[in-house]
Write a protein that binds this DNA or RNA. Structure first.
Lengths: 221, 221, 221, 221
DNA sequence: GATGAATGAGGGTTCATTCAT
DNA sequence: CATGAATGAACCCTCATTCAT
């Protein structure tokens, strides 16, 4: 519930990411809102276009005027999110970091955590939908692997290897290190947004603890 | 596909876990096999009983003679798995470990990893189905939280706190420590079984690396 | 409920009315009992053979060993009742009555009422089933018309005309007079057995009142 | 068959009796027509929606766009009839009659007969359906008892008691008198519309004879 | 004779999609 | 552009009936 208010913002952003730079009509916006909620509640296959139309307050036919099929509607919601998941990893050149001292890795991880938490908070429902549907939509899976998996992996790899070359990261395959970091991040997000969404938490401290754990884990001292 | 061969084994085990110790008929076994495959492929809501019947080589009505509803079929597959997920956490009394030296934690984590990897390998499809359906089946979610979440959390908590009291684990909330460990494990499993199922890996080494990462991360030196 | 006890009696009578003079097995008897109850509760089309089997405590297949089809089962219950409905109309020679004095008509009506009330009480459920199914089973309808409608009509007609010839019944078409009488009888039965089955009633008095009404109505004084 | 022509009239009336005063679409009308015919032919449980759709010349899905369930379709046909069955009993104040002379009872019965015969003629099929389904649909049974049974009974009771107080009706329980009258009426209707629908009859004379029978029967002279 | 697993046609109902208005 | 009635394939499920045991 509390995550809903900022929805209109990014929906409008969605419109801009689409191939069309036409702005969404009000009805279209309501359709997307309704679809997001219902897909998140019941899953794609478990949702009916008629229920979406009803919650959106439009006629059943209206949905199909804007989206050729039900799957089109799903993709229009979920596809723009794929590319945005990489978020801070493609931030303005990270080269600087590589030049800086050891504390910068912590800083980078911290910024990344803050950023991805905000992002998750804002787009929680869509992320849920995306994760639910990836196993069943090969095109989504491919797009995800290519645009998210590979990109993040490469970016992190560069960084890790830089620090490994400086002897500050233990001699463990880079791929594993990436996994350690990613797992920790995802674990944090999943824990607070999905497993225990109602339990309050000290974001700042949790991030710091996690980063300490990661840094210790990697330093190998 | 490659995970199919051992299926008959555990299906027969399923039968024994049921309240009835009656053995399954051959058709029933085929229905379960087909259902597991199709649910894993398309998700529960995306699967049709007629397709299951077809792949099982039985009449559609036959399914409903054994399982009152489609959801019943799902639960008969997925419910027995819930309790088995806790696996080694309820192993024969862990008290011993608590008495032993530091290396025992590593040992425990190692055994746990080996065991859960084997378990995941054996039951991969059903675990996928379970994870996919938990968000949409409140009863599953509850059973999962109660039987898996709580149990594992409590078990790990005891162990963590023991080592914390010995000063061998950094002063971070136990809940977070549990999460670090769980995330690392799940990350390993997801990585090799789901994200890159076809890529060969050195199980032994990966586990050792992960445990080293965790131990370093927690020791805080 | 209270009408159930005498059921076994007439079921055994059913057996004797059948073309086969073989006696029913115990299972067959239970099947009939269960079928009567369920047909009466839910109607023929609304009943399932599996429910009948269950209530009878036999296997589904057992029903079809004794009755080729579900409709056969219905007819085996309902057909023998058809002929018995004419009851006292084929009593041992009524000729006597025709010779006797006017009071005999009353006497005849009284005996008839008593008899049909007992009969209805005993066979209520089956009569309900019969009436429910007559509109949908042409063979039943024909049998009913031929064996019940015509016979009763002819019998009553003779009697009526005898009394008309004596000037004791108003000059109204015999067919109408028959209808007056039949309607009154059926109204009494329906009222007490179907519309208000739980309300106690003074059978004796109700019959007397009804007969008085009929006699007055027909005498035309 | 021969009663079909006036159907469209009252179907349109049905629409007006509904909570919505929206007019029916042409397809909806055809669905109702087909349903009435098939329900009357085979009974509710014995009819299939696919056959109804076929006879109505619409797709099966179309039925469910207008009526949520098959039972809904039944009720939409049969429910409006329930209240209309009481017909002339709620005619504009009957008090006048009570003031008038003895002949008024005859007049009332005559008007009632004429009116109910027309009504039955017009709605025969639906009345059949209603009577067939009342035993199996508790809600229908309740509505019928409350809206029809009680109302008619009370109305007739008042009238009967008035004439009893004037000494013009024999001293028999009012309830019985009501039953005599109702039985005679229903007998007449059943006889001509159901038992012998093809036999021509002199409506006027039959009614007069019946009323004479009733009046004689009640006067007790 | 009795069983009950198996059948497959058919049941009522839902649903994504179309199209005349 | 929006509507919502109409579609018909597909859905889950029930059922009368069969037949190997």
């Amino acid at each position: 519930m509390s995550q809903q208010e900022p929805m209109e913002q990014w929906i409008q952003e969605l419109a801009k990411l689409d191939d069309s730079d036409v702005k969404m009509t009000e009805k279209q916006l309501k359709i997307i809102q309704a679809a997001v909620e219902i897909f998140a509640e019941k899953g794609f296959a478990g949702s009916s276009t008629s229920e979406i139309a009803q919650r959106a307050g439009v006629a059943e036919g209206t949905i199909f005027r804007h989206y050729k099929t039900k799957k089109d509607l799903l993709l229009s919601i979920v596809a723009p999110m794929v590319s945005k998941l990489i978020g801070p990893f493609v931030w303005n050149e990270f080269k600087d970091v590589l030049e800086k001292d050891h504390s910068s890795l912590e800083e980078f991880l911290y910024d990344m955590a803050i950023n991805r938490i905000k992002f998750t908070h804002k787009h929680l429902k869509i992320i849920k939908i995306l994760l639910q549907e990836i196993p069943f939509q090969p095109d989504l899976k491919d797009a995800f692997k290519r645009q998210v998996g590979m990109k993040i992996f490469q970016r992190l790899s560069e960084i890790i290897e830089y620090f490994k070359s400086k002897g500050e990261v233990i001699d463990v395959p880079t791929q594993s290190v990436v996994r350690f970091i990613a797992s920790s991040f995802i674990g944090l997000l999943a824990s607070h947004f999905i497993l225990m969404p109602d339990q309050p938490w000290d974001e700042e401290k949790e991030i710091r603890d996690m980063i300490q754990f990661i840094m210790n884990g990697l330093s190998g001292k």
